[in-house]
Simulated assay, not measured.
Amino acid sequence: MKDQREDWLTWGPHLLAEAESFGEDIIAWRREFHQFPELAYEENVTASRVVQILSSIEGIRVIQGFGVPTAVVGVLGENLPGGATMLRADMDALALDEETGLSFSSCIPGIMHACGHDAHMASLLGAAELLASRMDLLRNPVVFVFQPAEEGKGGARALTEAGIIGKFGIERVLGLHFWPKLPYGTLFTRPGPITALSDRFHVEIQGAACHAASPHMGVDPIAIAAHVLLALQHLTSREVDPLDSVVISVGQIEAGDAYNVIPERAHLWGTLRTFDPALRDRMQKRLEGAVVDVCRAFLSTAGVEYVRNYPPVSNDGELTRQVLELSRHFFGVEETHVLDRPLLAGEDFSFYSLECPSNFMLLGTGAEYGLHHPKYDVPEELLHLASAWQAFLALTL
């Protein structure tokens, strides 16, 4: 009898057709997740719904709370020989007020799925449905990981430290991220580094409070914060070779409670991104020194907390070669691209790439608004495509 696996080139269209047949379910899951977003390590409602859906799929064993209380792991074909393929979706949302105007906009004030994690979860659940109905074609176990706390809190670090790779015999890890600004329906990846190392810092400036009408009677930490901001931008524009990539951005400033009172303290939170660990070492030292020196010059003091957050994601060369070749069969040659340079985005998928061969991919959405924008949205007609693609990878790698 002919081995069904000999027809693997035909699987892509079949997977797409089946995913489209229950595409309304995938879209409904995405809308549920989008309406009820939760921040890092607080994904309790989200995790419960993921468990409910995974448990309804025949053949999948569900493990809740592995390493982190809100983590969810599903295992398919665990008795099959060979190393497992892990497919990962992130779960957490962002502290952001939504402005999309969607009928299923966030019900939680100040929290929004502005990075597509709702779509990642829904499409991975779709892939689980597709693979469970094709157990006869599976050669290796598949592990579906719904990971909490990607947004700066290192959920992947917690799972790897808990031993997820060894516990489930994982041999390769795949991560798919919807990506705006890239052409609609196209796949991008690259061997080697694909994201930057990503650090975060907190600056506390200690001034002296006074009436806003008598600024000479105090030390204004808000005005000093403005000088600190300028000093940090000077570091990147005047102390780094323009051909070297480094970004220092302050995304949050907090000070004061009244318009007519100069407060005692000001706080700044920000991030540093680069690809070069040596450059990071130098810039961290300069950042910490510059903040203290600027504040001293204006008769205040400062404390700097610098956290080395995520290392770069490094895609395995051979696995990436295979992914690109399979993408040419699934998406087409014209829709498959090697990313010409890595992104300055940070991703805790990096912790998986440190443990075993991994590949992080981008699926273009052509969206107008970028990630972390209050109007960001994922085109829902791409969800079934992402489901079919992830299932195709698990079957063919």
Rank of each mutant, 00 (worst) to 15 (best):
N79E: 15
F104I: 09
T85C: 14
L96D: 10
A132T: 08
G82R: 09
D92T: 08
L80C: 15
S103Q: 11
A84P: 05
A128D: 03
E78W: 10
A127T: 03
R134S: 07
G74R: 04
S105I: 06
A127Q: 03
L102C: 12
D118H: 01
H117P: 02
I111V: 15
L130S: 06
C115K: 00
S105K: 13
A114M: 04
A89V: 10
D97C: 10
M112A: 11
D118M: 02
A128Q: 03
D90G: 07
A127G: 05
A122E: 00
L124S: 03
L131V: 09
L94R: 00
H120P: 01
N79A: 15
M91I: 11
S133W: 10
G101D: 08
E98A: 06
N79I: 12
L130V: 11
H120R: 01
L130A: 05
A132L: 09
A93L: 06
M121A: 04
G83I: 07
A95Y: 06
S103A: 15
D92G: 04
A84D: 08
V73C: 11
H117G: 04
L96M: 14
L102M: 12
T100E: 10
L125G: 01
D90Y: 05
L80M: 13
H120F: 01
G77T: 14
A122F: 01
L124W: 00
S123W: 05
I108M: 12
M86P: 02
L76H: 08
A84L: 10
H117Y: 04
G77C: 14
M91P: 06
L94G: 08
D97K: 12
R88P: 05
E78M: 13
A132Y: 08
L94Q: 07
A89E: 07
A119Y: 02
G110Q: 08
T100W: 03
L125S: 00
D118W: 01
L87R: 04
A128S: 12
V75G: 10
A114E: 02
L102T: 10
E99L: 14
D92S: 11
L76K: 10
A89P: 09
G110Y: 08
A84Y: 07
E78N: 14
P109Y: 07
D90M: 05
L87S: 04
E129Y: 14
D92W: 03
E129P: 00
E98M: 09
P109I: 09
P81S: 15
G116M: 00
A128E: 01
A93K: 02
T100C: 12
L80V: 13
L102R: 11
V75H: 09
C115R: 00
L124D: 00
M86Y: 06
S105P: 03
L96F: 09
L124G: 01
